[in-house]
Design a binder for these strands. Structure first.
Lengths: 337, 337
DNA sequence: TCCTGATAGCTAATCGTTTCGCTGAAGTCT
DNA sequence: AGACTTCAGCGAAACGATTAGCTATCAGGA
């Protein structure tokens, strides 16, 4: 591989002049410029990013660390993020923390080492696992989940509102014994969604039975076993609000395996987009969030920071969920109540 | 950000010693090592990859360029690849060519500029768009699709066999008028699968009707409209072999929208894992390939090349498909035949 | 003629590592 | 005791770019 020195020698100029030609960073006479350009072409010179990065302290790399790559929700984020990052002229380095705080820690250190210009992080730990200024050295946007008291920019959805919308829908259908299967309680998403649901019930003077509220990992298998347990008991709820898409699939599978029908025997509502939405039967009633918009917005904030068009100290953007009615819920029948 | 010099000063040693401790590249007495380690911890020192890369001419970056990030098949590959890449001590730079040769070209040049140590590529162009030694400068493994006459390592599945298996299954059920909806014919996957299907029919003295063989983009929408067209006509096939998962979803949707039932009115078989396999009803009969294994194998080959444990000039590994029987096919009934 | 200002292009420092080759102390052998 | 190894650890030269600051040239004005 030819270096800038080879080009300089060949063109009979200094490396500074070659650099000036490459970057248009200073005036170079037409004559010299022509010589440099042809030397570049002849030697097939490509500047070394490594050297340039070392000097400029920039890498053109943006890191994205998601919580669980096996979850279609995050796959969707990855898809949007790749497009957005490319459009801004950067490249995307992808990490999967697999919902493990330890893995996340290693990833964060790796991101620092790589010298990524910025990162979009879906944090997996509880708020107290991060220092308030944990991310100060590097442009950071938290996506989907927030960390209380942290100084990074944030893009989230209104989880409370999502829980409220779903619960209100079920309540309007006449359901009174509503359960919820939700994710780990230290996550802002799980907690917010559950709070919203409880709030909606409270607004009508109701409260879920203690055994009808369960939390577990944000995974299909976890939801499956919790659902089997909850639905197997005689005082099972008539409707369930499930906190995310893959869990909803697990719950539907559990319901089917127990010989129950959805929606006839049990109504299921959830939050967040669902795997294979095209083919899932019955189609899930759910609150969706605009994943692509959220991701684009997160990257806009990030690039803003990186390129130092900074304005306020901390910005946070909250997206509103929208209720999408499918076929997984029906009005409460007397015999099921 | 602390540098190696800061650490050296703080520990009262030379930068060479710090480097030796960081990389375990030379013996350092326990005493000095301890001092260095604590200096590193105190200063929160993280080596700069930019500098290291410049010196070593390595980036620890592996690029993955897939054909379509919106396709769950590739999302699954991304998931596996991230894990494998991390396990080998590299980081993953992700690109999406979106099935566009032009985008792919830009991606390849970007990968070169970034100085990635290697790349895994799912090529989107026809074989004649690549030069035989197109990828010679950089360690490369082609995944899923092959390029005839190219000198890069390759990991693929036996597409012919996949088409054959699916068609044989339908033939065994008594179907005779079998159609196929497949992807772009310049891709080795589309062509192989279709060839295998035709071969299986030929082995029983049959051939598909010309109008029953359609190809289009590997996307749900494309498949939907082709399927509506094909299934709307009175001499429609009694069974269809669909060349990939997202297309199968499109076909099922088209069938439902036409008021037909699967499998009673039409049997559907496909190749490749399917979105939301957990929830899709009826479950698709399909040939699957071991995506995780394929991806891991691709990365093993790649790292082999990068770290120059090279052996043969070109290696290619072919995985065999396995037929998974779902509920989307049934024996041919007289009235449908 | 001399001074000044403008400016094209060069020299060399710098970014943060790795690593070659060296030093000097300690150990080993005769 | 003297000669020879060993080897922990150091100093400094790379790696390939960018860029601050300098030099040499030239035009124009006094």
């Amino acid at each position: 591989m030819a270096t800038i020195k080879d080009v300089a020698r060949r063109a009979g100029v200094s490396t500074a002049t070659v650099s000036a030609v490459m970057n248009d960073s200073a005036f170079v006479s037409p004559e010299l410029r022509a010589r440099v350009v042809s030397a570049i072409r002849e030697l097939r010179y490509e500047p070394s990013l490594a050297a340039r990065n070392l000097r400029r302290n920039r890498t053109q790399l943006i890191a994205l660390a998601v919580a669980d790559l096996s979850n279609p929700f995050y796959a969707r984020i990855v898809w949007s993020a790749e497009a957005a990052v490319a459009a801004w002229g950067y490249s995307l380095v992808l990490f999967n923390s697999d919902e493990k705080p330890d893995t996340e820690r290693r990833i964060l250190s790796r991101i620092r080492t790589l010298g990524c210009d910025g990162m979009v992080l879906v944090p997996v730990g509880a708020a107290n696992q991060y220092q308030p200024h944990e991310f100060d050295g590097i442009a950071t946007v938290l996506l989907g989940r927030s960390i209380e008291g942290n100084s990074a920019d944030t893009v989230t959805i209104d989880n409370r509102e999502a829980g409220r919308q779903a619960a209100d829908y079920l309540l309007d259908l006449g359901h009174r014994r509503i359960g919820s299967i939700t994710g780990p309680m230290q996550l802002s998403t799980s907690k917010g969604r559950l709070d919203g649901m409880i709030e909606a019930m409270a607004a009508r003077g109701l409260a879920p039975q203690p055994g009808h509220i369960r939390s577990g990992e944000f995974r299909e298998e976890a939801a499956y076993s919790v659902a089997r347990d909850m639905m197997g008991s005689p005082d099972r709820p008539t409707a369930i609000y499930v906190a995310n898409g893959v869990m909803a699939i697990g719950v539907m599978r559990a319901v089917a395996d127990l010989g129950l029908r959805c929606p006839q025997d049990i109504s299921i509502a959830s939050t967040d987009t669902v795997a294979g939405a095209g083919g899932l039967k019955p189609r899930l009633t759910r609150t969706e969030h605009p994943i692509a918009d959220m991701t684009n917005e997160a990257l806009r904030l990030l690039v803003d920071r990186i390129e130092e068009r900074v304005s306020e100290p901390v910005r946070s953007i909250v997206f509103q969920p929208a209720l999408i009615v499918g076929e997984s819920c029906m009005p409460l029948r007397e015999n099921a109540g």
